[in-house]
Nucleic acid binder design. Sequence first.
DNA 1: CTTATTGTACTATAACTATAGTACAATATG
DNA 2: CATATTGTACTATAGTTATAGTACAATAAG
Lengths: 135, 135
Amino acid sequence: MNSRRASFRFRLDLHSGVPVYRQIIDQVRGAIASGLLSVGDQLPTVRQLAVDLSINPNTVVRAYRELELGGLLETHQGTGTFISVQRLSDGEGERKRQLAQIVSDCIARAGAAGFTVDELIQELRAVSREPVRRR
Amino acid sequence: MNSRRASFRFRLDLHSGVPVYRQIIDQVRGAIASGLLSVGDQLPTVRQLAVDLSINPNTVVRAYRELELGGLLETHQGTGTFISVQRLSDGEGERKRQLAQIVSDCIARAGAAGFTVDELIQELRAVSREPVRRR
DNA sequence: CTTATTGTACTATAACTATAGTACAATATG
DNA sequence: CATATTGTACTATAGTTATAGTACAATAAG
């Protein structure tokens, strides 16, 4: 098979208040966005990730299942879990609108907290260089 | 009294998975860290904030109580709730964490929709150049 | 003093999150 | 084929989070 093992590591922030299964989901999504994970890459096995993060296997299962439902990955019993092909069914206009919406929300939230767009961009670039740092 | 009403607005993200009481706490801390709130400023009343955010008063009470235990604000029965510190001891770290959290959510959302971090940055730059967009 | 407003305290209940443990099904490997 | 590895399914339990509702206490305003 032409799959590689995932090249990034999960990191949990147990003080953030964000549910663990949610953090896993966000990190996979983020890794795809930043190019750390791409089609065919294999994620850690359910049991292995549970051990690595010192969490219950059921929690990993929940995260993987939601990602699978979202179409971002595929699971194959006996084989593993892999990043699936991205289906961008929406038209270009719709995609543009989606991106604008995401950015708009992000700016609004950052603005409410007293951050500028420049600070946002700077942090994005930093994360882009050193991707899965989540505290 | 020399107190002002709070000059910022709370913002809940119900999709983030972060507990509501936690979001309130984080936003007050962030507002202090960024200078939006400082000594003497009055926060919304328990009941008012509950109405504004469409949440239960008990949830506001919980957030305010934890902030009071942390020494960031004082509550006076019959009067209201007021910021009691000039600034945070670790304001810088607090802000950094908050920005990282916002960016992380944003990237995750982008990744789920099939966008890359680069596209995100590009769109942010565009908005940054032409900030006032009519809808 | 009377009233309204503010924070506080309490019980009860439902939903969500995470854990523990067991068993099973599909696939890869030898 | 036998075995190990993978994901899956299920039950049970505990802790957290949020809601609803009621009542009380301290202060401000008239």
